[in-house]
Design a protein around this nucleic acid. Sequence first.
RNA 1: GGGCUCGUAGAUCAGGGGGAGAUCGUUACGUUCGCAACGUAAAGGCCGCGGGUUCAAAUCCCGCCGGGUCCA
Length: 924
Amino acid sequence: MLEDEYQLDFFSENGFVRKQCSKCGKHFWTRDTERATCGDAPCDPYSFIGEPVFKKKFDLAEMREYYLRFFEERDHTRLERYPVIARWRDDIYLTIASIADFQPFVTSGQVPPPANPLTISQPCIRLSDLDAVGRSGRHLTTFEMMAHHAFNKKGEEIYWKDHTVGLCDELFNSLGVDPMAVTYKEEPWAGGGNAGPCVEALIGGLEVATLVFMDLQQSKDGDIVIKGNNYRKMDNYIVDTGYGLERFVWASKGSPTIYDAVFPNIVNELMDLAGIEHELNNTEYANILSQNARLAGLMDVSEKANLFELRKQVASSIGTTVEKLSAIMEPVETVYAITDHTRCLTFMLADGVIPSNVKAGYLARLVLRRTLRMMKDMGITIPLSDIVKMHVQNLPEYPEFQEKLDVIEDILYHEERKFADTLDRGRRMIQKSARHYKEAGEKIPLTTLVEMYDSHGIPPEISKEAASEVGVDVDLPDNFYSLVAEGHSKAEEKEVKVFPYAERVSKLPRTKKLFYDEPTRMNFEAVILDIFDNHIVLDSTLFYPEGGGQPADHGTLAVEDIVLNVIDVQASEGVVVHIIEDVEDGLHVRKGDMVQGSVNEQRRMSHACHHTATHIVNDAARKVLGDHVWQAGAQKFVDKARLDISHYKRITQEELNQIELIANRTVMDNQRVTAEWMDRIEAEKKYGFGLYQGGVPPGKTIRVLKVADDIEACGGTHCVSTGLVGPIKILKTERIQDGVERIEYAAGLAAVRATQEMESYLNQSADALRVRPEHLPSTIERFFCEWKEFKKENQRLKEDLAHVHVTQMANEAISIGDLRLVAAVIAHADIDELVKIAGELTTNRDMVVLLASDSSGVKIVGAAGEDALKAGADAGKLVRRMSEVVGGGGGGKPAMARGGGVDCGKVTEALESGRNLLEEQIRK
RNA sequence: GGGCUCGUAGAUCAGGGGGAGAUCGUUACGUUCGCAACGUAAAGGCCGCGGGUUCAAAUCCCGCCGGGUCCA
């Protein structure tokens, strides 16, 4: 069945034959009738290294331009690249392919493509092969996927398989590729819920392009099975191609590794800094690298066993030992990886990823810390930002990088310091632990290493290093990271909140939303379309359903004299459902009834104020803190609202004041707030992805809201002009995650109330101290200092008092056996005083002291001198007995114990029983 | 989103229901022509904040605030 998919006219008309690979058994198309293998690794090794396959050498900029122009000349529209952080999607963090730019709405057919057909060179980031980067000679974390896409619909076909393969082949020809060297390998493709036939274009053992014909979508009852999943044909079918820009450049140069082809100058500079002689002119050296890349092309080197196997093969092919080879290769591979990782960071940071401990920010930090570790290993001591600067200069095609350089440097500076702090802390922790195990004569257990990494971020290698400094050995297993992963097993699936009546509601017509056209009207008439379980659906409504961080409107629905309270409003696929407060004997309204709706105006206006204020504060924050600020969430309430923004350090009080001032100035400018329904793609083109700060709304058209300088896709209700927001008062900031700051504020009357509340705190505090509010800071400062002094003085006095008591009480001691007992009640003394007195008295070795006081309950202290202890006295037991008498408990050490109870009347009795017990104790 | 950790003197940390400690740093004195080193002593603590349990909480429980970190 699938085989037919590949029987293209293009192949038959151009002398291609279909063959089966003698090694992997897969089918491929070639002009070379002699050919036996498919051309892909591992069936064919790289042959292009040292023998470029294009007639000319290209660098990145030249190759990208050549490709895009080639397709422009063949009726494709050139598109600007999208960011590497997928702002328009909520299912992935990073852009992983050019087609990701058009998912989900264009690929699903809901939204027309920005151009058709189109061509683009899309920077992508994939971190899945992190371990292979540098080692394999071909892996990169960041690459540009050059692509041409055609979005076809039934009856509206742009082009399909023949033309796609034809264009690809023509491109190769234009570059001077030997037609006999090109193979197209059949390799069905599936991913992200879609699938389809696909051919891989291979030259010289290198896969340079993948041509996917996406025409299937996953479906339970589909009749086509691929890799165990069922698929069915889609109405729209898409040409999804991917040409690796970096691989093209590599193929054009035939250099030993892709790294030497893509960013040779940075590789060379870092090699110098690491003290490595990276002389590709040296044939012996170049041969080692080439041989390594050739053989690495045949395997997955991210696994340690495979890497060792690779070393063995390369070593034997050039006649050396694995050890000698490793000594040469490891530093070189590390420098390659540093070069790659720093380019990845350049794209991430320039496109606005803020390093953090969650989400996309975590990925940035992962790469960043990996890079810092490798730099340390290589003895590269320049700041990370210097390397990133090299990349920015190396990529003049991206002028936006240059603009962001200041912020990038600042972020990197902060991150570098943070990591240094973490490592310092970790080193101390490990060494402490190591000393502990050294004393016990044991090795540091694996669980400790796992905890160090998992809870404190200390890489095991660093733990090992720090431990060996103390002289303790550590066993580091190969599967360390999978052991860590085990500890995290089975994260609980969170339940997705689904609207319970979605099915029933989906059969109803979409509700007409009156609140957009008439944001100030609060009363309306409508017809009931459906009623179920206290849920009412109308043909039109003024009630705003919960969404976009704005809570639902409340209010009433009335049919004649029946008035129903609306306590919640939800929307499901455009249908607004009003949820009614329980009424004892049923709702008494029917389908078809005409209702009078009335929205609670105060609630709505508070929400509107806070919603508009959110846009204003967001804009002010960006103006004060920088363009990297991005909304990460927001919620509005009646009395306040909050906004979460990405920012890489804490917001200072001055910055906060500045934000508040700018926000209020925007209010006073009193500009009109406008909303416009726009075509999604058109809006993206005009305003960029900043539109999606508040979330990505579905659908072909989106509501573009302009509040002063802030432009976002927003479905909320707003004030008609900024002036109506009223005052905006920032209440507090909070750091909810590393890299995400939460700003809480109130707007309108709520802001006035919040200010009044703050004022009342001030006034109450001032009243309590009998000063004017403006004197509070100095007065409180004085009070605090005095309080500390009094506390110290109090301490001293108690000690003095204890002295006085001591001399007096020592004289009053009674003899019990060889010991002396002091048993006394000291009125008004607190427990500390008793302890001091008892402590001092027992410097007399033969003394036993039992003291009690009756200030706020009974306090008891017992103590025994050294000789008394030897004689059998145990203050702990004495105090416990005495405390039981007064209805409490107590205990402590034989030398010193405390206790107490509630029954003040029995203090003397308690002392008596203490004395009796002591007599028993020393008799033994 | 899920998990793990930590907040004690200026710094680094120990203690982990019943007398708040160590090291470094600071200050003073001694030694020295002076410095370093050394010796002696002192100052320096809302034991993050708020509740709860208890006769008793730095210590146990709950909440909050502030850090750190791993994973998706």
